[in-house]
Nucleic acid binder design. Structure first.
Lengths: 354, 354
DNA sequence: TTGAAAGCGCTACCAG
DNA sequence: CTGGTAGCGCTTTCAA
């Protein structure tokens, strides 16, 4: 095996090897390897284009790969951001993660790491410690219940942070990219009211996360404007107990003649749909439904389901932009609020009056 | 702000600060911070227990966090493994990823990173380059079509690698944790045959991935043993074209009087179920179904669905064990084959003969 | 049981 | 445009 081959195999080609082979200094190689391509194709660094080309050729030939540990140690940066959703298997987060990754790579040359908090504040804390130890340049996180402290620590450490999907009240120094949750709740109730329904209820999580309280407020406001405050009712459950609470809530509601439910998140929607199927209840006749987020399930359910969606791509890209500004320009985090979109389905159409 | 507070905020507490504060050398601190807890509670390092305790106390008080970039640069290791599924939003991979992460943390003290290849060999290649640059100690990867080259590069770089869920034929020097795919295909066909069905067909991906060809072989073998070779038929599709191919295959099959389908993966199953719903076909009377992997969808479909599952926890943990041995003991990768499990549902029960 | 010192590969500063 | 060099924080000999 030649020396070249040996170095390639062990991935031990350093900047120094490239420099020697190309007959230049390590400084030049570093410049070239870190130069960004300018729109006109030229390299954004003070190096003779010919020299640069030679360096690039040699680097490619030797199979040079930057040792990011060394670069990170020296520069204190890692060109890496972390994305921390609450549940990576959720379509909403899976989609958004992909948008974030693409945008971060394309526009900022960041590598993106993922870790799921599973709605567990302790786990989120551990992840953020890891983030910290890894010189991560910035974090995009969907907070879960009780995670305010962990996120505050991030801010104290001066790590640029963007909250996505869920807000935490009274936290300073972070960027935020959120849905207009009040509007979402308002639109959901409004739609059901416009269909002539009155007994419209809601199931929500008592998580202390403002996304939920905002959706509740929007719902309540629409009910109030329609003079239906007396019929409005918000049931509360938790992630841990939803599977047992919801069947009770639903069977009881059907007995009480409730006409519709607004379900402000995917997991509640899925749970309700499952309960309805188990009990032989049909939508929209037994219960009209307005659900949230996207899911394969909505398509495969016997009746298509009306649901509100968050503008995925926009959310993800905005999050990267806000974070990028915080990292590159040391700007304070800005807040961006996006509008929800309504997808109409059979669960709110042609409802037989009881 | 005190000096202590300042250092904590900036997360700039180094091993040297701890050493000075504790009145010992940096070497001692390094020993203590890297020592593993022995079963009896003592520390596995040549340091006076009293000194060690003092060091730990000081480190905790100053909020010391190891700079992993420095550690990785010096040691050439990162205590980090990467998990690369084809699609992280898939329940199967989401579940397995969680098992891997837990096991890796608990038994090996590894941090786990995730990146999804989206069934794209080019993207997988990019990810593996990143892995390479990051001093990742080992990789657990689900290969996708055309990824053999990229994975071979990993092996050439001497990065311990374990293939999970899908095999690549003729690749040397990797660990493998796979399902007995032949058995799965055999069991699926066998079940349908035992229900008195004869016209049993299969839809598969033409991906050149042996998991699929093995499932096909198992199916064919069972059909052959039942003297049904003449009726056996395997339709082929691809990820890109499944959405248009499958409606055609299914409507045509119903016309031809096909009685059952075996669908050797989750995405094919979902697509078929959607097609059947759109066309008003019912299972099992129009078509009996044996599906694969787990999904919310199976539960919410009007009829519960018979499906084969992979033993998630076992798969994940085995993968970590195999990888761990490769990393720690420089052992060659071993191959582990696990048995599928059948979950019976309504899609294969009480079938009306046509 | 403890400590001194040599770098890991890279970036950033400074000088030419 | 080019190059010399200090040192990021840590692990790892080696010696005491």
């Amino acid at each position: 095996m030649s020396r070249e081959e040996y170095l390639m195999k062990k991935n031990k080609v350093t900047i120094r090897n490239v420099a020697e082979e190309a007959g230049v200094s390590v400084t030049l190689v570093s410049f070239v390897m870190n130069a960004k391509q300018r729109p006109d194709g030229s390299l954004d660094c003070p190096v003779n284009p010919k020299t640069a080309a030679r360096v690039k050729e040699v680097a490619a030939r030797l199979g040079y790969r930057k040792n990011v540990a060394a670069a990170s140690l020296r520069s204190g940066r890692s060109n890496t951001i972390a994305v921390i959703p609450t549940d990576i298997s959720n379509k909403f987060f899976a989609g958004i993660s992909r948008c974030i990754e693409d945008k971060a790579q394309k526009d900022y040359n960041y590598t993106t790491l993922f870790a799921s908090s599973d709605e567990d504040a302790k786990k989120l804390g551990d992840i953020l410690d890891t983030v910290n130890a890894h010189n991560i340049d910035g974090v995009i996180v969907a907070p879960c219940e009780g995670s305010k402290e962990a996120i505050q620590k991030l801010i104290d450490y001066r790590i640029p942070t963007v909250l996505i999907d869920r807000n935490i009240e009274g936290i300073e120094g972070v960027g935020k990219v959120l849905l207009d949750d009040f509007q979402a709740g308002y639109d959901a109730a409004q739609l059901l009211i416009s269909k002539g329904l009155k007994k419209i209820e809601m199931i929500s999580y008592s998580l202390g996360i403002s996304s939920f309280t905002e959706r509740e407020t929007g719902y309540s406001k629409a009910m109030e404007e329609a003079g239906l405050t007396g019929l409005a009712k918000i049931h509360n459950t938790t992630y841990a107990t939803a599977a047992t609470d919801i069947p009770q809530i639903i069977t009881d509601a059907v007995k009480r003649g409730v006409e519709a439910f607004f379900l402000p998140t995917y997991s509640l929607s899925a749970q309700v749909m499952k309960t309805m199927k188990d009990n032989g209840y049909k939508t929209p006749d037994d219960l009209a439904l307005v659900c949230f987020d996207v899911s394969d399930i909505y398509e495969l359910y016997e009746t298509s389901v009306t649901h509100l969606i968050q503008p995925l791509k926009e959310l993800g890209e905005k999050a990267v932009e806000v974070l990028g500004k915080m990292i590159e320009k040391n700007e304070p985090g800005e807040t961006v609020i996006l509008k929800p979109e309504m997808i109409l389905g059979g669960s709110t159409e042609n409802i037989k009056k009881k």
